[in-house]
Amino acid sequence: MSIIRFRNYSVYTKDRKILDNINLEIFENNVNTVLGPSGSGKSTLVRSINRLIEITPGLKYDGEIYFKDKSIFEYQPEEIRRQIGLVFQQPNPFNFSIFENVAFGPRIHWKLKENELEEIVKNSLIEAALYEEVKDNLKKSALSLSGGQQQRLCIARALALKPLVIMMDEPTSSLDPIAMNKIEDLIIKLKEKYTIILITHDVRQAARISDFIAFIYNGRIIEHSKAEEILEKPKNEITEKFLTDRLG
């Protein structure tokens, strides 16, 4: 089942196309990887889904993106962003306590009693596999955490909004290998409950955890299929070249 669909969707600057006529399906409860070299438009793709593009100065778009068969532009932007979480490349926790970071989303969307809020924060931290490490220090500043912990905190922060989709834009590219492993394990676990969109330029990472891979190049989706198919028998020579270059 596809939960998000792109239909002839493009993004332009004044003088060029950043995304060129994208048609793409995102499948529910799978890890949907968008793989491509840097500068190919991956971030723009996910930023389009949660409608950050329309508030970015200098960018224009046309075409459609459907979420649950309704155009994302028919939702309130805040509602789309609640249901589709985004985790950025650089961990970007707020300069608040760990608790307040996770509580931020629920606080602005729902009127909650303090104990309900605590429940949500706790569950989100558990889901993001961070709770055991921070349960005694929820009042401590989020900035005191390590990079990997900060990234899991950002995942917890998104999970606290009970989203359907979690998008992660190169979530491990600023982390060390151990922290990366933890996040990859987490992603595999999370796909049981959530739809995952993973952005990466790392072919090995794509191979380890993807169910589907879309290869993007110069703003175009070159090919899109099951992970094994695209990795073993790429149909397009650009894809093939990219894969062989990266895998050596």
Partner: peptide, 15 residues
């Protein structure tokens, strides 16, 4: 205020 912090808040649905 850093852009990435503002975007973090917006992406969580902050009005």
């Amino acid at each position: 205020v850093p852009t990435n912090i503002k975007e973090a808040a917006i992406s969580l649905g902050a009005k």
